[in-house]
């Protein structure tokens, strides 16, 4: 029996009068890879930024791990620290690969020795151990995405959100993503990835949610085969 991590109730987000998202009811479980599908402009990225607690909803209630979350304020940061997001073409800070990966750990006040161990582990997971001292801005697109993935993994998030992780990836990097993401449900992490219906996404998906015009399509539900 998997535990519900995110619960959205009547959540509405508008951009200049237009309703970008309107979700009556959506629950996302821990230990499950959920793929959000839908055409462009369906509200997928908005949903991710809402789940990442970057964009506050205009209306509705958002629960995480059974607690109702505030719209803003200092407590939000504590909640946000349990969730992380890998954006499409993620932004890497203008510094070395290892400092990029260590950034979130520094924010959490981890000591240097611990940081180094965990950064080493995360870089090994994405196959970039050798890249640690390099300037992050000089990597290829696929390598940059892998750094972004390591930067998220190192935080051991309870929920990992990914926006189009397989877009513009070279085959080797795509393989890394598939392998690493596949391991996460076993660790109890909720994975939510937004994707056009791609092959890799479907191989990983344990559940698929369809968005259309900001609303859940009726055929959303657990995939029987997963």
């Amino acid at each position: 029996m998997s535990q519900i991590l995110f619960s959205l109730r009547g959540v509405v987000k508008r951009f200049e009068q237009r309703e970008a998202l309107n979700l009556e009811r959506l629950d996302l479980e821990a230990g499950v890879i959920t793929v959000v599908e839908g055409p462009n402009g369906a509200g997928k990225t908005t949903l991710l930024s809402l789940l990442a607690l970057i964009t506050p909803p205009d209306q509705g209630r958002l629960f995480f791990d059974g607690h109702e979350l505030p719209r803003s304020g200092s407590q939000l940061t504590a909640w946000r620290r349990q969730i992380t997001l890998v954006a499409q073409q993620a932004y890497l800070f203008d510094t070395s690969v290892e400092k990029n990966v260590a950034y979130g750990l520094r924010l959490r006040g981890l000591e240097r020795v611990q940081r180094e161990v965990r950064v080493g582990e995360a870089l090994a997971q994405v196959g970039l151990t050798e890249f640690a001292p390099r300037p992050a801005k000089r990597l290829s697109g696929g390598e940059m995405q892998r750094v972004a993935l390591a930067r998220a993994l190192v935080l051991r998030p309870r929920a990992l959100l990914l926006d189009e992780p397989f877009a513009n990836l070279d085959p080797a990097s795509a393989q890394v993503f598939e392998r690493v993401l596949g391991e996460l449900p076993g660790q109890g992490c909720a994975v939510v990835l937004v994707s056009h219906a791609l092959e890799q996404a479907h191989r990983l998906a344990q559940r698929v949610v369809y968005l259309r015009d900001g609303r859940l399509a009726p055929d959303a539900g657990p995939r029987p085969g997963a």
């Binding site: 930024s49 990442a52 946000r80 954006a87 993620a90 998220a152």
Partner: peptide, 18 residues
């Protein structure tokens, strides 16, 4: 500057000040 810097820091657990 790239407008993704702030949001990226937030998703990695930064406070607004950070």
């Amino acid at each position: 500057l790239d407008n993704r810097v702030g949001p990226t820091a937030l998703t990695l657990g930064a406070t607004p000040m950070q």
